[in-house]
Amino acid sequence: MGKPLNVGVIGCGAIIAQYLSNFRRLDSINLVAVADLDPARAQAVADSYEGVRALTVDGLLAADDVDLVLNLTIPAAHADIALKAIAAGKSVYGEKPLAATTAEAQQVLDAAAAAGVAVGCAPDTVLGTGIQTARRAIDDGLIGAPVSATATMATPGHERWHPNPDFYYQPGGGPLLDMGPYYVSALVTLLGPVVSVVGAASHTRNARTIGSGPRQGQTVPVDVDSHVTGVLVHASGALSTLFMSFDAVKTKSPNIEIHGQKGSLIVPDPNHFDGDVQLFALGAEDWETLPVSAGYVDSGRGFGIADLAATPAGQEPRAGGQLAFHALEVMESVLQSAGSGQAVAIKSTAARPAAVALTALSTPVRA
């Protein structure tokens, strides 16, 4: 705290551009090095960002001036890279999910606790003004005691636009594990931890046709369920219903609705950082758009790292490993329940992260 956090990035794929854009606006983050299995990709990033050097993965892990490793590798490599960074004495922040499985994720948390380093994980969308303004409305009692929520994500499939969609239809993919982290993390932030789940799942096709890019017209096999529904029982007693689909065409439903005894909230897309929060109070005649009242203003990917940098030593970051682990266990358990037909108890818990006051972190853009 009090000085910039020196960050090194492993993984220079497409997602890094969003992080770089925001790092240029955050004076609490000092990007010092990047690495990728493709040295040319790492060098291209280094050439675009003043003061950054391209290293090998091992070289970045060994660098004395790297305090935190931002892990932007593929999900299957998340745990391996995180464990190597922790072994090198560095804190870690990863793209979602924390690891491919809860067993691997637990190894990461245990290693970090033993080493005394911090673990953070996307999505940090929960820190933006959209989710945080909705959180403020709930905390201020505008809807009374929350009773239920619905979280809806519907798309006909990523193969329509993604040139290499194979992963989305293989084990570890599917609509829940792909997009669920945004929705489950938001639901826990809004309503608190989950104690049990019930799930059901299906798929409509055994193959998908790629709609764009050099492989257009090729088919990929579907080896996972592409439509998942789950009911989450929160410790508070509230019930959340998940609807995650690569089979549905479109929905007019809001991404998340929260219903309470005194009113209902429309919560903006949890894959975004902002958006309007609307309230329909008991006895009202129409929806009311609430003023922005909480969260990091004009935020984006990487603000979770800035929040981690401001977290006192020994305290859990808001976009921290415990929340990411809990969300991963909830999703795994929904799929387990879908396979067994039985409710599944959630073993982990995660404290509802502290609210974010209305805060502007942006500074003038750097080269």
Rank of each mutant, 00 (worst) to 15 (best):
Q342K: 15
T204G: 14
V292F: 08
A137E: 07
V57S: 11
G180K: 04
Y168M: 14
I86R: 08
T189I: 05
V277A: 07
D47C: 09
E257G: 14
N22L: 09
E332S: 10
K252L: 14
A87T: 14
Y182T: 00
L335G: 03
D124C: 09
A115V: 11
H203T: 13
A345G: 02
R208I: 07
A79N: 02
S264Y: 05
S21R: 13
L239A: 13
P123Y: 01
T102D: 00
E159N: 03
I258N: 09
C121E: 00
G174K: 00
T363I: 10
V356E: 05
A355C: 09
G157H: 04
A207Q: 15
P193A: 08
T133D: 03
I16P: 02
R205E: 14
Y19E: 06
T311R: 08
F246D: 14
A111P: 09
K250N: 13
P214S: 02
R352Y: 09
V194N: 06
Q218V: 03
A145F: 02
A35N: 06
A62T: 09
V334P: 00
Y296M: 05
T251Y: 08
D269K: 04
A87K: 14
Q43T: 13
A238F: 04
D286S: 15
V32Y: 04
G11W: 01
I16T: 11
P317S: 07
W161Y: 12
L55Y: 03
Q322P: 00
G213N: 04
M331P: 04
K347P: 01
Y168I: 08
Q170L: 14
Q261W: 07
G263C: 07
I346M: 11
L176C: 07
I346T: 11
K3H: 12
A103G: 11
E316K: 05
G302P: 00
G141V: 10
N22Q: 15
D80R: 08
V117P: 06
R160A: 15
H203P: 05
D298C: 01
Y168R: 11
L177D: 02
G314N: 00
G173F: 09
D139V: 10
H326I: 00
K262F: 11
V220I: 13
P4G: 06
A79Q: 04
G172F: 04
E285D: 15
T129C: 00
V66E: 01
L190N: 01
Q261I: 13
D47M: 05
K84M: 12
V34L: 05
D27L: 09
A306N: 06
A114R: 12
Q216D: 08
A309N: 02
P270Q: 05
P165C: 05
A118V: 04
C12P: 03
L187H: 02
E95C: 06
A355D: 06
S337M: 02
A46E: 10
A357T: 12
I15S: 15
L61I: 07
V220A: 04
D140Y: 04
L127H: 06
Q342D: 15
V233R: 12
W287R: 11
L31G: 05
G116H: 12
A186P: 07
V297W: 09
T189V: 12
V197I: 08
A200C: 10
N71H: 03
S340H: 06
A360K: 13
I10F: 00
K347L: 13
A338Q: 03
E95P: 01
L239M: 15
A40Q: 15
G260R: 02
K347S: 15
E329R: 05
E257Y: 12
Q18H: 14
A87P: 03
V365Y: 12
V34F: 06
V292M: 12
